[in-house]
């Protein structure tokens, strides 16, 4: 036993020796996170002000200026109806962002509530909830969303329902597994001895300990949601024409892929940029918050 403790101390000491490097990586992580966060905030601001920043009305058709390549007047060119692609991208951003945030909130909300209660209460309730999630997890998520959106009919509200229906399960699963392990912790026992009610325990002791992994998950999910939303719009199931929405814009430009590539490239790039930023942000958030790496 002594020996083991010695060994452990030695290894700790060794680690401490490399600490300058470690500090460097930690600040590196912080820096990376800072940059990504400010980028994300910038994107959100642009999206929020999209309608004001757009130089032209995104719905204004101009039959004399159809399919014009990018120029000083039309930064990203025009589409088949002579609408300004740049303005459409900017206005589409607010759609994509607000809907993705909304959906992540809904999905995480449902998932966390169900997951926490089921993990904390346990027993039969837990079994029922988890079997339901299992059923939902048995379907490929995109196929399920397409099916639901197809049945409910096209439209943004139906898309939100379709995507929410399938996406809440992963939050429920994760929260549930965390909550059920926290339930066994000593501090919960102690709180109980201290006279806290079950609801108090759930909100004061269980939930705060879950929040870190959930925030990471939600951040990573924003990009995913945007892709799903764009995917459904691409299939004509979400945004209806003439709404400026990136997925729909890409769909619309399909037949002009070779003759007017700017119609496809710029909305595609906007989508790519946003998804990358949010995914990297989620990654670096994990690097910072995850206790395993921070030691």
């Amino acid at each position: 036993m002594e020996q083991i403790i010695e060994k452990y101390k030695a290894s700790r000491a060794e680690k401490r020796l490399t600490s300058p490097l470690q500090i460097k990586t930690v600040t590196g992580k912080r820096l990376r996170f800072g940059i990504l966060l400010s980028l994300a905030v910038l994107l959100v601001i642009i999206a929020a002000l999209g309608n004001i920043l757009a130089p032209m009305d995104p719905l204004l058709t101009n039959y004399d200026m159809t399919l014009k390549p990018p120029s000083r007047e039309y930064l990203c060119g025009t589409d088949v109806l002579g609408r300004d692609v740049f303005s459409r991208i900017l206005c589409g951003a607010s759609n994509s962002f607000s809907l993705s945030f909304l959906m992540v909130t809904i999905v995480a909300g449902i998932g966390i509530v169900l997951g926490t209660t089921s993990g904390y209460i346990g027993g039969r309730f837990d079994t029922v909830i988890m079997r339901i999630t299992d059923i939902f997890l048995a379907f490929p998520s995109m196929v399920f969303a397409i099916a639901v959106a197809g049945i409910l009919g096209p439209g943004l509200v139906n898309t939100i329902i379709a995507l929410s229906l399938i996406q809440w399960t992963k939050y429920a699963r994760m929260t549930r597994s965390l909550a059920s392990s926290i339930r066994e912790k000593n501090y919960i026992e102690q709180a109980r001895f201290g006279g806290a009610t079950e609801v108090q325990i759930m909100f004061k002791y269980v939930l705060p300990n879950l929040i870190t992994p959930l925030v990471i998950m939600a951040t990573l999910d924003i990009g995913m949601m945007m892709m799903s939303l764009a995917g459904l719009s691409f299939l004509g199931l979400a945004s209806q024409p003439p709404t400026p929405e990136w997925g729909y814009m890409i769909n619309e430009s399909r037949q002009y892929m070779q003759t007017a590539p700017w119609m496809m490239i710029y909305p595609g790039m906007a989508l790519l940029l946003v998804v990358i930023v949010f995914n990297l942000l989620g990654d670096s958030l994990r690097d910072i918050l995850d206790p395993k790496d921070n030691d």
């Binding site: 719905l59 204004l60 058709t61 039959y63 088949v80 109806l81 024409p241 003439p242 619309e252």
Partner: peptide, 11 residues
């Protein structure tokens, strides 16, 4: 159909 419908909508 997509092009026409949007043009008609605008007009």
């Amino acid at each position: 159909g997509e092009t026409l419908s949007q043009a008609i909508q605008a007009d």
